[in-house]
Design a protein around this nucleic acid. Structure first.
Lengths: 140, 140
DNA sequence: CTAACTTTTTGACAAAGTCCAAAACTAGGT
DNA sequence: ACCTAGTTTTGGACTTTGTCAAAAAGTTAG
């Protein structure tokens, strides 16, 4: 995220302290939840309402400025890095989330021929596993 | 699902009317939600508690008798068809869910080399799109 | 600087599940 | 068939994540 303020203006969004702070927080904490981001923003602004966090996240997501990912058994997470078709690797036990470049070149999985008459617009891949820390914890 | 009762016994689970009914309901309605299943079971047994539906679905899922899928913006859905690594195609507007055989042969996407030290055990793929009915609705 | 329009805030509400304790049921041994 | 021990089922309260709505505050164009 180069310049949060410019980004907002480019999308015809009024610039507010809350939006700038949320945008910076998403940038600083990839894959953070709304709750994580609220905490981070509070550190910067002192306070922000829960609703505002959701408002901002929703509008930024609609405009395509950030991306929302919603793995099973986890609240929604947000990220900055968009437009490069990467996927995610999620720890089943602690929820730690990492980016994974599309494994087999360019969007190989996307090539689902139109099934059942659906118009497919995205292939989402989530790799499930156990992160190093949780592997260690389980062994002990 | 050949014989629900035998299936339960094979997994050392006491056979109860609720379990049989839920198991049959999952079989009859692939990709149904807990709510859908509750309605279906009520048609068969007259009544069942919400908690029991969750209890049964959880135990069956743990035993690997059924599979739970949790697409974004949808309550959990359950299915009968397990062990064949198939994926799902979900309609963004109505939630309709269809099975999709793994597009490129055998688990091609699963070949994410161990990233970040994670021990990967599953690759989940969800294709997002618009089902025929919703395409028609949108055009009108 | 003002006016029009958005955002932010606050508080109530909703959906999907889980937690807990009491009542009912299942399965195994007599 | 009947007990008994151990599970399940039930009902109700509670939690989490998020949305709705109306009033107050802020932003931007003129």
């Amino acid at each position: 995220m180069r310049d949060p303020e410019a980004t907002l203006r480019q999308h015809a969004l009024p610039v507010t302290a809350q939006r700038l702070a949320v945008l910076r927080a998403v940038s600083r904490h990839p894959h953070a939840t709304a709750d994580d981001l609220t905490a981070s923003v509070c550190g910067e602004l002192g306070t922000i309402s829960r609703q505002s966090v959701y408002n901002v996240l929703n509008v930024l997501t609609e405009k395509g400025i950030i991306r929302r990912i919603q793995p099973a058994d986890s609240p929604a997470r947000y990220e900055d890095r968009i437009g490069d078709n990467h996927h995610h690797l999620v720890c089943r036990s602690c929820g730690r989330t990492e980016d994974v470049c599309c494994a087999v070149g360019e969007a190989p999985c996307l090539k689902a021929h139109s099934h059942h008459g659906f118009k497919i617009d995205e292939a989402e891949v989530i790799y499930w596993g156990t992160c190093p820390a949780c592997q260690k914890k389980k062994r002990s």
